Amino acid sequence: MKSQTLCLAIASTLALGACGGGGGSAGSSTSPTPVQTSSLTPITAANSGKAAASGYTASSLIGDSSSSVTGVLTGVSIGGTGMSAAAPVIKLVKRSFGQGGAPLLTGATVNQACAGGGTITVDANLRNPQTLSNGDTMSVTAVNCVEDGDRLNGTLSITIADVSGDLINTTSGAATMDTRFTGFSITSGSETATLNGDMKIALKVTSSTDSSVTISGKSLQATDQKAGATVASLTLADYSLSGSTNGNTTTSSGSFGLSGNANGLGQFAYTVKSIQPFVSVGTDMPGSGSLIVNGNASSVTVTALGAGGVRLDYSAKGDGVVTQTATLSWADFNASL
C-alpha cells in the first residue's frame, strides 16, 4: 500500500506527515483543535524535504481516490494505483445493497459475507432497499472483511444526501455520503491505517471513466503501523480535497491543516494548500502541479516535474524568497518519508 493510504486515509482518506506502514490499532476519536497559524512548527532547511513529502502525500491521496472510486463503482481500473479512504466506504455501501447476497431491510440487522472472506453487519434505514435515497442512514461494521485485497475492520456510520441517478446499479449518478469512522482500519500488505473522525464524500460519476469527488471534514485522525510499531499519528483539520478522473487523466488539489507525530519529523503542525492542481496521466507521477507547506515563518513549495521528479523550494522566512532549492527523483522524494 502506498504511503498515500494513511494520509487522508485520509485518508486520506483518508488521507491523509511522514507515513510508513502495517499492524493496526484505533486512534483517538477525540476531535482536536484545528491547526492555528500561530501554533505552526518551523520548517528548517534540514527537514524541509520531509515536510514537503508529508504535505504532498496527504494532498495526493485524492488523486488515488478519484480513480479508485470510479473503479469500485464500475469495475473498471482507471489510472493510478493505491487505495484511498473514500474507496472502502463506497465498497461497503455497494456490498450492503445486496451486492454480497441478502438485500437490506429497513429496521433489520443484515449480515453479509465479503468477497475475500470476513463479514459486514449492516443496520440501515432506507427508502428503497435497492439503491441510495436522500435521508438514508447506515451503520456498517466490518470484521476482517476482504475486498479487492484490502482487509477492513471497524465501523462506518453514513448519512446519504444529494442523490441523483443510481450509483448502486448503473455507471452514472451522484450522492453525498456524510461519514464517520470509528476505529476503522484498512490493511493492505503489511501496512494498516486506522481512522477516526468525519469525512464528507461528494461523488459524481458520469461514465465508466469519468468521475469527480470532493472529500471534506472537520477532523480526521489516522494512525499508521508497520510490524506492530506506530510510525505516524496524524490529523487532518478543516480539510477539503477535490479531484477528478477523465479517461486516464487524474487531477487533484486540496487545502488543510496537518499535524501529528511522525518518524523523522517528531511533533509538527503545518498548513498545506495547492497552488496549481496536480495532473497525472495513467499510472505516471504528476507531470504538473504544485503546493505549499507552511510552517511558522517558513515554507517549502513542491512542484511536480513529471518523469523528471519533483522540485523543492525552501523559504527560510516564508516570504517567497527561495533560500534552498533541490530537485529529487520521485523515488528519493517518497523515500524521505
Rank of each mutant, 00 (worst) to 15 (best):
G228W: 06
S211V: 06
A232T: 13
A53D: 02
V321R: 05
A87P: 02
G289K: 00
A331M: 10
E147T: 10
Q225Y: 07
G309R: 12
T74A: 09
G320T: 06
A102R: 13
T251V: 13
V163S: 06
A26K: 02
A304Q: 02
D210C: 07
T141Q: 11
R95D: 12
V205R: 14
G266F: 14
Y314H: 11
A269L: 04
S39D: 14
G23H: 07
G27Q: 06
T109H: 13
G306F: 12
V205G: 01
V321S: 08
R127I: 07
S290D: 08
T81N: 10
V163L: 02
P34Q: 05
V310L: 06
A202R: 01
P32K: 09
L6G: 08
L104E: 06
V302P: 01
S212I: 11
L265R: 04
L6T: 09
G257Q: 00
A161R: 03
T301K: 15
V110T: 15
A53L: 05
G135C: 04
I158K: 00
T119F: 04
Q221A: 14
S54R: 05
A142P: 10
L73I: 11
T33Q: 09
T214M: 03
S244I: 00
I62F: 07
T301E: 09
N125R: 09
N128C: 14
T81W: 03
A193V: 09
D178E: 13
S12A: 08
N294D: 15
L291G: 00
V302R: 02
D313V: 11
P42L: 06
T323H: 08
G282C: 10
T283C: 07
D284G: 10
P88H: 05
V272E: 04
G117Y: 04
N246M: 08
T121Y: 01
D238G: 04
T81L: 05
V279Q: 05
D313S: 15
N248D: 14
G79A: 15
S164C: 04
N125P: 02
M199P: 00
A45C: 03
N296K: 15
I120Y: 04
L203R: 07
L132N: 02
G217S: 08
T119N: 12
T192I: 11
T179S: 00
R180N: 07
F184W: 10
G243A: 12
G217E: 00
V140I: 15
G308V: 07
R95V: 09
L203N: 06
T323Y: 05
T235W: 09
D224F: 04
G189V: 13
A45S: 13
L312C: 12
T230Y: 07
D162T: 12
T170P: 04
L220K: 05
K94R: 14
T182R: 09
D198C: 01
A45E: 14
G149M: 11
A232V: 09
